[in-house]
Design a protein around this nucleic acid. Sequence first.
DNA 1: CGCAAAAGTTGACCAAGTCAACTATTTATT
DNA 2: AATAAATAGTTGACTTGGTCAACTTTTGCG
Lengths: 176, 176
Amino acid sequence: MPADRSALVRDLRCFNRFYTGLIGLLDETLTHSAFTLTEARVLFELGRRPGRIAANSGGKAGFLARVLQIDFEPAASDIARDLQLDPAYVTRILRKFSAAGLTETRAGPDALRRRVLSLTMRGQVALAALQSAADRDLTRLTVDLGDEEAAELSDILARVRHLLSAAPASERRESA
Amino acid sequence: MPADRSALVRDLRCFNRFYTGLIGLLDETLTHSAFTLTEARVLFELGRRPGRIAANSGGKAGFLARVLQIDFEPAASDIARDLQLDPAYVTRILRKFSAAGLTETRAGPDALRRRVLSLTMRGQVALAALQSAADRDLTRLTVDLGDEEAAELSDILARVRHLLSAAPASERRESA
DNA sequence: CGCAAAAGTTGACCAAGTCAACTATTTATT
DNA sequence: AATAAATAGTTGACTTGGTCAACTTTTGCG
C-alpha cells in the first residue's frame, strides 16, 4: 500500500497557489487584447487543430480525407467538449469570430448538421498576434535562466505532466 | 547571450494548457461547494495567515504583538492585494462571510480604519471542509504514483516553482 | 416510417466582477 | 495647527461573461 501522501498533497497545493498566480499574470496580456480569455482559448484551439486539410476540399488531401473518413477540422461541438464550454456560449463566440471575419464555417463532409470550422487569413493573423504576445510573456518569464536551467525546466515540465496525467479523465463518470 | 528559447516556450505553453485543464478539474469540486472559486480563495487565504494571535487580544501573545507593532492578522486590503481582487468585491465577500458567521472583523491594533480579519470557529470548520475536499481530489490525482514517483514529484514541483519565480512581480510597474 | 440522439441556435436570465463616487481615518507638509 | 494627500473601506449602478431551458434541424437506427 502507498505510504502517506500528505506531504505531496501539501506540495501540490502550494504549487497550485503559485501557478494560479502565474497564470493570472500571463492571462493579463490576453485579457487586454480584443478577446476574452475564453475567446482566446477558442482561437488557440482552432489554430492548434490541423484544420488545413478539409475532407471536402479538392486535391489529393481532400480525397484522402474523404476516403479515410477522417475529418481533420473541428466542429463547434469539438471545441465545446475539449474546452469544457457551454455549446450556447461557443455558438456566440463563433458568431462573433465569424462577424469579425476570423473564421469560416461550412457543412462537414459527412454530415450537414456538423458544421466545420476553419480560420480565415485574418483569423490566422489574429491568432499569430495573440501567440506572439503570449510568447513574449513566457520568454520574459524565463529570460534569466541559464541554458542548462532552461533545458532542465523543459524536462521536468514534461515529467510533471506525465506524472499527473494518470487519472485526469476518469473523474467525471457518474451517469448511470 | 542565452540561446534560443523557443523550445522552452513551446513546452511552457503546452504545460500551461495541461495545467489549466487540471485546475479546471480540481476547481469543480470547489465550485460545487457553497462558495465561489474566488470566495474559496479568500477563505483559504484567511486560513493561511497566522491570524491566531491578535495584537489587540489579551494575554501574552497579544501583548507581544502590541509591543512589537506587529499585526499578524490580515486586513481586507491585504487579501485584495495578494489575490489581485477588487476591494469592492472583497468587501462584499467579507460581508457574506460575516453574515454567515465565518469571519470576524475588528479594528486593527494600530489603526482604526484598518479592520483586521479572523476566522471564527465556524469559519475554520468551513475551511477545513473545503480543504479536505481539495485534498481528496489531489490525493486521488496522485494515488497511482509509487512512493519514489511521489517524492520525485514533490521535488520537481519545488524546482519548477524555483525556476519560474524569478521575475513574477517585476512585470507590472508602469506608473511613473 | 418513426423515434431517439446529436449539433446547433435562440432568448431569457444570473451572478461574478468592475467602476466611480464617497466617507472616514491616517500621514505628510508647511 | 491647518490643510493636503494618501489609505482603508463601503455603496450603488452597471457590464458582461457565462448558464439554462426550450426549440429546430439533421442524422442514425430498429
